[in-house]
Structure formats: structure tokens, C-alpha cells
């Protein structure tokens, strides 16, 4: 691929054609502040946070939206730039003054706080470019601007697929997870932690971060540039985690009372002993191939490896299968 060589802060750098000044700066280890930029979206140049000086240009240019060309001479600092940046910071902070009258949407997942919104339109563009749902729109101008479900309806009535990608791309807390807010306990001093793992729904294998407070899951999100999903999640992956801390979870082994026919709580030792005794008894009376094992394609590789090993190496049967065969 053809490359361009340009000069940034007095040093030369080679970049691929089609890369932006923001990419070029990143290559040199210069991290410019951005707000409206998301690598997964088309460059927008809306917030002007990433302005740089370009020789020959009448005024500073947004690095995200300026494509590199050979021989460019760029500077990322300077007195004039600092002045402009300070003004932009002020502007970003003063935007949410209006638009307090906002949607109160019945959906359980996506909330909006206009006070935090800097009108970078990342959510609107995400929904348009990536999801291609067009469920969000930018309404009004200047200090009166805000975002809302398209045509002001509830998200539940629009083409919104409740993926929460708008929350994922939001650079502030303007868009937030209602579920998380509900579960998060401000009073608690339980440890907050983040655990990188893999989603348990479909076979795409999205890499997720489970946010937890003590032993409670309080959110699931994903990071751009990580895993096969590149920070994207679907509605199930991002929001369907209430089952983890659900009160109906099994917490004790159960065995069926042969007289009453009911399942009753018991000790691990008793449950394991009954299971093993009956398995060995059936093996002895009817042979190893009278036992069958069904593994779950929801469990880990290690879990199901161990199960087929138990069937083959201890019971002595190849009767192991799973629903994975469809």
C-alpha cells in the first residue's frame, strides 16, 4: 500500500494513504484528546477537540477529519492552539444548559441525561452507520440541541434493537445503562472490579468486561479494538445478565425423595454418593453402554472435556453427545 511521509512536531513519520492526521499522531505516540471520534465510525470533525496546526492552512484543522498527504508539516502544540482549545473546552461544558425537557422512556435499558450530553452525535452516528437502525436523532441547534429516539417515540416503539451501542460509544455519561444504575449501590463499600471474559450467548464469542460490586454484577460492556466484536455487543450480551444474581438460582444439591416423589435439598456428599452408587449399579447390571451423557455447549471446554473423560475413562462408554451436533 502506498505511503505518505509527513512531518509532525519536527519529526518525520510515514503513514498509509487514507490515514488521518489523528492516525499519524497516534503512530508517533502523540495522543490527542478527542470527544466525537470513534475509530469504528466515519471521521466527523464535530467537536474540534483534536485541532492541530497545519502549515499552509488558514486556521487549525481537526486531525480526525484531515487525511494525510505527502509533505504535510503539522504541529500539535503552540500558543494559538492552546487558546483555541481552551475555548472549545468551555463550549463543550456549556452546551447542556438547555434541553432539560427530555424523553422519559419506558425501556429498561437505555437512559439519557442531557446535562451530560456534549452533542458529539456519536450515538446517532453509531445507530446510523454501524447498526443501521436510525433509532436516534439529533434535534435542535446550539444550546437547544438534544438527542431523542427518532421522532420522539419511546425506544420500544422505534427500530431500536436495544443493543446499547449508543451507551458504549458515548464519551460522557449522557447515555447510561438503567439496569446498572438500579443495581449499583452507592452506599456500599464493596469492591468494584472489572473482569475480562467472553459472552455466554451465541457463538460469535464477544469479549466482554463484567463490572461487579462485591458479588453483584452491575454492568457488562466491551472495549473497542478488543476481541472479534471490536467493542460491539447485542441486547442480550450487554443487558441480559440479571439471571446471574437471580433468586431462583440453584444453591444446594437436590435428591428426589423416593416416598414423596419431591426433590429435597441435601448435602454434596449425599448427592454425589447417591449419583455414583446408582451409576455403578446400573453399569454393573446393564453394562456401560446403558449410561448416556449429554454435555452442554454452554459450558467451558474444560467442563465438557472432563465430562466425556468421565464417560469414557471411568464408565467405559462412548455415549457422549451434546446439542452441539446441530
Amino acid at each position: 500500500m502506498p505511503t505518505n511521509t509527513l512531518t509532525i512536531n519536527g519529526e518525520q513519520v510515514a503513514v498509509l494513504q487514507g490515514e488521518s492526521l489523528l492516525d499519524a499522531c497516534a503512530k508517533m505516540g502523540i495522543s490527542l484528546l478527542t470527544a466525537c471520534h470513534d475509530n469504528r465510525l466515519e471521521a466527523y470533525g464535530g467537536c474540534r477537540t483534536c485541532l492541530v496546526d497545519l502549515d499552509g492552512a488558514p486556521r487549525p484543522v481537526p486531525a480526525c477529519k484531515t487525511l494525510t498527504s505527502a509533505g504535510m508539516v503539522v504541529s500539535t502544540s503552540g500558543e494559538q492552539l492552546e487558546t483555541v482549545r481552551a475555548t472549545i473546552d468551555e463550549m463543550l461544558e456549556c452546551i447542556p444548559a438547555a434541553a432539560l425537557e427530555t424523553w422519559t422512556d419506558a425501556n429498561r435499558f437505555i437512559g439519557y441525561d442531557p446535562q451530560q450530553c456534549i452533542m458529539c452525535d456519536r450515538c446517532v452516528r453509531y445507530c446510523d452507520e454501524i447498526m443501521q437502525c436510525n433509532a436516534l436523532e439529533h434535534v435542535g441547534q446550539g444550546v437547544d440541541a438534544f438527542i431523542q429516539p427518532t421522532q420522539g417515540d419511546s425506544f420500544l416503539d422505534t427500530s431500536c434493537e436495544l443493543c446499547g451501542g449508543c451507551i458504549g460509544t458515548c464519551p460522557t455519561d449522557a447515555l447510561y445503562s438503567k439496569q446498572s444504575l438500579k443495581v449499583f449501590n452507592e452506599q456500599s463499600d464493596a469492591v468494584l472490579s472489572s473482569t475480562r471474559t467472553v459472552c455466554n450467548y451465541c457463538g460469535v464469542g464477544c469479549v466482554i468486561d463484567i463490572e461487579s460490586q462485591g458479588n453483584n454484577v452491575i454492568d457488562i460492556d466491551a472495549q473497542t479494538g478488543v476481541g472479534p466484536n471490536d467493542g460491539h455487543l447485542c441486547s442480550k450480551g450487554r443487558f441480559a445478565w440479571q439471571f446471574i444474581n437471580h433468586p431462583q438460582r440453584l444453591t444446594k444439591p437436590l435428591v428426589r425423595n423416593t416416598e414423596s416423589g419431591e426433590l429435597e435439598e441435601t448435602s454434596w456428599q449425599n448427592a454425589l454418593s447417591i449419583a455414583a452408587t446408582k451409576m455403578l449399579d446400573i453399569k454393573q447390571r446393564h453394562g456401560a453402554d446403558s449410561l448416556a451423557f449429554l454435555a452442554s455447549s454452554r459450558c467451558t471446554n474444560e467442563d465438557v472435556y472432563a465430562l466425556q473423560k468421565l464417560a469414557r475413562a471411568i464408565i467405559g462408554t462412548n455415549n457422549v453427545h451434546s446439542c452441539a451436533a446441530t
Binding site: Y201, A295, S297, C299, T300, N301, A325
Partner: peptide, 10 residues
């Protein structure tokens, strides 16, 4: 499903 592939692999 999340581990259909792995369940077969195993």
C-alpha cells in the same frame, strides 16, 4: 451457542 465449537472439539 457460545461453545458449540468447543463442545465438539472436546
Amino acid at each position: 451457542q457460545n461453545n458449540v465449537q468447543g463442545c465438539n472439539d472436546m
